[in-house]
């Protein structure tokens, strides 16, 4: 995999750009060999990442830049790597975790969903400010598409 992303876009921290970003990543995932269902789930993971940036990184400010970079993973098993960067508030990395789902309440599901869908979810502080999140997904026979999505454990979560 080359260091340079195969695709890189910049958008503002506005919810109206979620749908086009999802469509782009779903289409790319399918180009990289994922099924429609898997592509849609990867797009959901991206959506949750962007929502966290808008809500928590930029605290609903609408003028914050967000950069999305995408690479194919060409060494088997193939897959996709997505990097999301922002210039927003830096969050203490130890506070980013999934919440207990037994506590039924609105919100706080984003990181859980990302971890449930993707193989790797890695937050770091971006040099110079902001956050960087790298999402990685490789093709696998073990997919939640068409299988019991409750079978995988994951109990850390987000900002709440």
């Amino acid at each position: 995999m080359s260091d340079s992303p195969h695709l890189r876009i910049e958008l503002l921290s506005q919810p109206r750009y979620l749908a086009p970003a999802r469509a782009m990543v779903a289409a790319l995932s399918q180009r990289y060999g994922f099924s429609d269902c898997e592509g849609n789930q990867i797009a959901l993971a991206l959506d949750e990442a962007l929502c966290n940036v808008i809500n928590h990184g930029y605290e609903r400010r609408s003028d914050g830049p967000i950069w999305i970079s995408v690479w194919p993973i060409d060494d088997p098993p193939n897959g996709i790597k997505i990097r999301i960067e922002d210039n927003g508030r830096q969050v203490d990395l130890t506070t980013i975790r999934s919440r207990n789902l037994d506590d039924v309440r609105p919100g706080g599901l984003g990181v859980f969903i990302m971890k449930r869908i993707m193989d790797d979810v890695e937050y770091t502080h971006r040099p110079g400010g902001g956050m960087q999140l790298v999402l990685t997904k490789r093709k696998s026979h073990n997919t939640s598409c068409g299988e019991d999505p409750l079978a995988v454990d994951g109990r850390e979560d987000p900002h709440g």
């Binding site: 959901l44 929502c51 039924v104 309440r105 609105p106 919100g107 599901l109 984003g110 969903i113």
Partner: peptide
Amino acid sequence: DSSGVATLVE
């Protein structure tokens, strides 16, 4: 997405 789910939970 989870914002819709949160709306329905509320």
